[in-house]
Write a protein that binds this DNA or RNA. Structure first.
Length: 397
DNA sequence: TCTGGGGTCCTAGGACCC
DNA sequence: TCTGGGGTCCTAGGACCC
């Protein structure tokens, strides 16, 4: 029982209710406004009573709870609060794995001599986060990550629970299959169609059937179903991709607008690459049509890049060869992957004058505030010569 | 009802090489 | 003249997580 899973309750909404006392006790929804195409990011428990949930379209949330107070996310404040919480967690063990801004695993196996049992540590953490930061944090305790997280999910909100050996035997088998890590909406539907609803059903199902339903995930899921999870708590993992995307208020087919959006996305991605001291070899453009079909076009080059100009030029070229040029789109995204160490000059066959300019813009923006200086929209995307066959097939629909 | 934005991992087919 | 087998890389799509 050495793994703790700590999860802040309705985090964004709780920060707002803490800082604006007039919101206490009221349904608060953090996310996109109800008349937009966006979704709910987080909502207070007062809003959940009405059936409002994370990831639900804001328009639907409004229909369920018209009296709710809708607020846009203030990520800067949430990040500050998150850092304060993580500072408390770090006092109990150095082995912390952040799952997101409001969730973490702690390996406390070496912390008992100083801080007591896992339950005692959990109680201390909850007390301190509550009294020092005014936030509720739920804590699950288990022999491994999966059981600890399961405990949190069962004791939320504002709870603490240890998932005991006895619960592995008597409670885990009775839970619905979607409580298992990696079993989402699609797998649940497939399993249910085959008469598999609970963890016990899954354990009794023919292995061959599970293989066809779950593929390579089968062994991992069967382990979880028995309460086995050997994944270690990993404090740091190198980021593998950096991307930004944008859903438009209305569908856009004007190529000049798409160009401008790609330029802005390229600026954001390039800036984040530099912060992370990374360069990318692969650029991917994501396009979503009004019927919600999503297409991607990517290209990998032997030269790693991190400047806005090169990223934009590549993205624009991919868009122009996507087969969706001039078609209405509801979303455009841009992702950099195959990341390399960006601290050293990458060998290149060609010199790129744009890179120097971007370095200057970057440093100036670092020195003042980000976005003060921007590259003007004078980039001529022509000049790239790409073999059509290397871009991939055009969408058939 | 009408679907965000940030990610990770997996699969399958084709190109290409030996 | 009618066609191997293995391995790796790239690309596109999709499931899943928070």
């Amino acid at each position: 029982m050495d793994i703790l899973h700590c999860d802040l309750d309705a985090f964004f909404a709780s920060v707002e209710q803490r800082d604006q006392p007039e919101l206490k006790g009221k349904p608060v929804i953090i996310g996109a406004p109800p008349n937009s195409r966006g979704v709910v990011s987080t909502c207070s428990y007062e809003a959940r009573v009405f059936g409002v949930r994370s990831a639900m379209p804001s328009s639907q949330a409004y229909r369920l709870c018209p009296q709710a107070i809708f607020l846009p996310p203030d990520m800067k404040r949430y990040r500050e609060a998150s850092q304060q919480v993580f500072a408390i967690l770090a006092e109990y063990t150095p082995i912390i794995e952040a799952l997101s801004i409001d969730e973490a695993f702690l390996d406390v196996s070496a912390s008992h001599a100083i801080f007591g049992s896992s339950m005692e540590i959990g109680i201390q953490i909850r007390h301190r986060v509550k009294t020092e930061l005014g936030l509720n944090i739920s804590v699950g305790i288990g022999a491994n990550k999966f059981l600890a997280k399961l405990a949190t999910n069962l004791c939320k909100p504002d709870g603490i629970m240890e998932f005991t050996e006895d619960m592995v035997t008597n409670l885990l088998p009775t839970l619905p299959v979607d409580h298992l890590w990696g079993i989402g909406a699609v797998s649940t539907r497939h399993l249910n169609r085959s008469g598999i609803y609970t963890v016990q059903d899954l354990l009794e199902a023919p292995r061959q059937l599970l293989k066809t339903l779950l593929g390579s995930n089968t062994d991992f899921v069967l382990d979880l179903a028995r309460g086995v999870d050997n994944r270690p708590v990993t404090p740091y993992e190198e980021v593998k991709s950096i991307g930004n995307e944008l859903t438009f208020p209305q569908d856009i087919s004007d190529q000049q607008v798409i160009e401008q959006v790609l330029l802005e996305l390229a600026e954001k991605v390039a800036h984040r690459l530099r912060i992370a001291q990374r360069k990318c070899q692969t650029v991917t453009v994501k396009l979503r049509t009004p019927d919600f079909q999503t297409f991607s076009r990517s290209i990998t080059s032997p030269t790693a890049i991190d400047d806005q100009r090169s990223i934009f030029d590549t993205a624009w070229m991919l868009y122009q060869h996507s087969g969706l040029e001039g078609k209405p789109l509801r979303l455009v995204g841009l992702t950099a992957s195959r990341l390399q160490d960006g601290r050293y000059e990458q060998p290149s066959l060609f010199s790129d004058p744009g890179q120097d300019i971007d370095s200057i813009i970057y440093r100036l923006n670092e020195k003042f505030t980000q976005g003060t200086i921007k590259r003007a929209v004078l980039i001529n995307p022509v000049g790239h010569n790409i073999d059509q066959d290397t871009v991939g097939p055009k969408p058939t629909k």
